[in-house]
Simulated scan of single mutants.
Amino acid sequence: MRLLVLGGTSFVGRALVADALRAGAEVTLFGRGRTGPELFPGVPRRIGDRDTGDYTALRKGRWDAVADVSGYVPRHVGQAMDALGDRVGRYLFVSSQAVYVRTGVAAGADEDTPRRPPVRDTEELTEETYGPLEVACEDDVFARYGARATVVRPGKVVGPHDAQDAVTYWLRRAARGGRVALPGRPEQPVQVIDARDLARLMVRLLTDGRPGAFHAVGPAEPTTLAGLIHTCARVAGSAVDLVPAPADPAAPLPLVRPGPQ
């Protein structure tokens, strides 16, 4: 499989490239060349910039599939699709669970769960706009590629090279042990997925040519915020005493952050 990865050197993209290479794919990277230039020696790189709209490097070449892990607003996705046209077989877009409506969703909801209304009049990524912007990106990919479009909607992604402090904060705090102030509800259900598992799923979807939208969440067994923190403490060889604390109702939940994964 000839695979073009838009991004590919930071967290999810990095895990995807590593897994694709292990699976024998011929990978090409597209990005600014500033993050991880030492990674994946020998892998061809096309230099461009999504923010300035410079996709000139993609005007030539053909690929069996493209994996877009760097598009977060419709302009990014639209310009990439315009540059690639029909010279790619399948377009896989990494979206987010943030596309779904926030209320009235029952446990076990599937990919047909109602999504939030799309937003196209801003490029500012906030708690309120991130999901609707992803909805607009999804719609554009499906409209352009139809049965050749694949959308993956991860939950909270964790694992090696995670630059965010959402889960890693709780890992470090649990390792110290003792009394831990916990904003929010200890019984709050949480779902996380390791970036390496997410990468394996995406490579499989591309290899099999699977169209449509797919959840990417875990673990297989239900867990809660308190359960996750206790598990972190147990693995670290410590013990914690969780102390519920009042949470700012305007703040995101402890494991939720807007913006790129």
Results as ranks from 00 to 15, higher is better:
12 V>Y: 08
6 L>N: 10
74 P>T: 05
86 D>G: 10
36 G>Y: 10
45 R>E: 13
47 I>S: 09
8 G>T: 03
20 A>R: 11
36 G>Q: 07
40 F>Q: 12
11 F>K: 10
27 V>L: 11
18 A>N: 11
33 G>V: 07
26 E>M: 11
87 R>S: 04
23 A>Y: 09
2 R>S: 12
70 S>M: 10
10 S>R: 15
47 I>M: 07
66 V>C: 14
78 G>D: 05
50 R>T: 07
34 R>T: 15
1 M>Q: 06
80 A>G: 14
51 D>L: 06
41 P>I: 03
58 L>C: 06
71 G>F: 00
89 G>W: 03
47 I>T: 15
70 S>T: 01
83 A>Y: 05
86 D>K: 09
20 A>N: 10
36 G>F: 10
68 D>W: 02
36 G>K: 10
72 Y>D: 07
81 M>G: 08
49 D>Q: 08
52 T>D: 08
68 D>K: 02
57 A>L: 01
26 E>A: 15
5 V>R: 08
60 K>W: 00
58 L>N: 05
40 F>E: 12
60 K>I: 00
1 M>H: 07
37 P>W: 09
5 V>T: 04
11 F>M: 07
50 R>I: 01
85 G>H: 05
47 I>W: 04
25 A>R: 13
59 R>N: 05
61 G>L: 03
73 V>D: 06
68 D>N: 08
39 L>P: 12
58 L>P: 12
27 V>C: 10
54 D>P: 13
27 V>I: 09
16 L>F: 15
51 D>H: 13
45 R>M: 12
48 G>R: 00
71 G>D: 03
24 G>Q: 14
8 G>L: 03
27 V>N: 12
29 L>N: 09
85 G>W: 01
35 T>P: 00
31 G>S: 15
26 E>Y: 09
21 L>H: 13
66 V>T: 13
51 D>Q: 14
4 L>Q: 07
39 L>F: 15
73 V>A: 05
5 V>S: 09
47 I>P: 13
55 Y>R: 02
68 D>V: 05
17 V>F: 13
28 T>H: 11
86 D>M: 00
89 G>M: 04
14 R>S: 08
19 D>A: 15
19 D>Q: 15
75 R>Y: 01
47 I>V: 14
29 L>F: 11
76 H>N: 06
54 D>W: 00
78 G>Y: 00
48 G>A: 06
70 S>N: 04
24 G>T: 14
5 V>Y: 10
63 W>D: 01
64 D>W: 03
46 R>L: 15
4 L>F: 07
10 S>Q: 12
62 R>F: 08
8 G>C: 06
41 P>Y: 07
78 G>A: 04
32 R>Q: 09
20 A>T: 05
1 M>F: 11
19 D>V: 12
58 L>D: 04
69 V>I: 03
2 R>Q: 09
28 T>M: 10
15 A>Y: 11
89 G>I: 03
64 D>G: 11
26 E>D: 15
88 V>W: 05
81 M>W: 00
4 L>A: 07
65 A>F: 04
51 D>M: 02
71 G>M: 01
1 M>N: 01
88 V>E: 02
18 A>I: 11
74 P>H: 03
51 D>R: 10
74 P>S: 06
34 R>V: 15
75 R>W: 01
1 M>L: 14
56 T>V: 02
6 L>T: 11
72 Y>M: 06
78 G>T: 00
